[in-house]
Design a protein around this nucleic acid. Sequence first.
DNA 1: GGTGAAACCAATGTGCT
DNA 2: AGCACATTGGTTTCACC
Lengths: 153, 153
Amino acid sequence: MERLDEYDLKILRILQKDSSMSTKKIASALNLTASPVYERIRKLEKEGYIKKYVALLNKKRINKPVTAICMVSLRYHNEGFIDKFDSQIRKLSEVQECYHMAGKVDFFLKINVSGLDEYHDFVRTKLSKIDNIGVLESYFVLKDIIDTTEFYF
Amino acid sequence: MERLDEYDLKILRILQKDSSMSTKKIASALNLTASPVYERIRKLEKEGYIKKYVALLNKKRINKPVTAICMVSLRYHNEGFIDKFDSQIRKLSEVQECYHMAGKVDFFLKINVSGLDEYHDFVRTKLSKIDNIGVLESYFVLKDIIDTTEFYF
DNA sequence: GGTGAAACCAATGTGCT
DNA sequence: AGCACATTGGTTTCACC
């Protein structure tokens, strides 16, 4: 599929809001029958538009109420050091997002923990043990204003 | 999560990795039958551990390859101004995450766009139109190192 | 590309242990 | 709490348009 038509876009918009909707229900929302919707969804999966289906959990309910944003800059910036940071940060399961950035800050991290004690422990025994960290600044989330996985199109 | 036993935790771990797994398949992974697994999943939904089920899309495939992190600080910090920022930022569909922070930076934003032109436009015609913004700093993602919705427990 | 029917199989509900 | 079985209803395929 080289290009998505309006039906495909609508299917993607629905599925990224609620993937538990049945093919039948999506079909009736689009004034189609189940078969073409079923085939389109399969195609969107196969061609990589849909990465995966997941359950989103309530972080407060599962005892990870504290979110921190952490900005990291390395001391040295040759390729080896960046790759080394990459491979070490991937092992830290508290990190939900980590982006390599352009500019003064090298990495943004989003970290979920049960409380400040666990965060302290995370920084002390895990994050700060990674080689070559120059600057490390932590910020705590007071309130989630927007937190979605949807893309607008 | 005092009320959750090891089965519940395993179910949550599976569903946040892949919610398209059938009840039967989850059951056989836990050495159980479908009925108790089905009832546990219902309970986890009803009691708010599971917020929703969604499809995660491939941002490059759907033409939103550029991610920016934006740090915003307000000029004035009385309650009215914070609420006003809150209600105005929610209307901007490019923003996938927005957190109200403790400390020097007031808000972190994650923004997805099709390219730098669209980002320029977003900042010029939408973000900078919000009242009371003091500092606005943008950073661009070079590479996603970790980008998951899973919580580790 | 879409429709509708048929076969198949998972989700769901009940009753037993 | 879990298991087994029955029913409902969604998924998937396919012949036809």
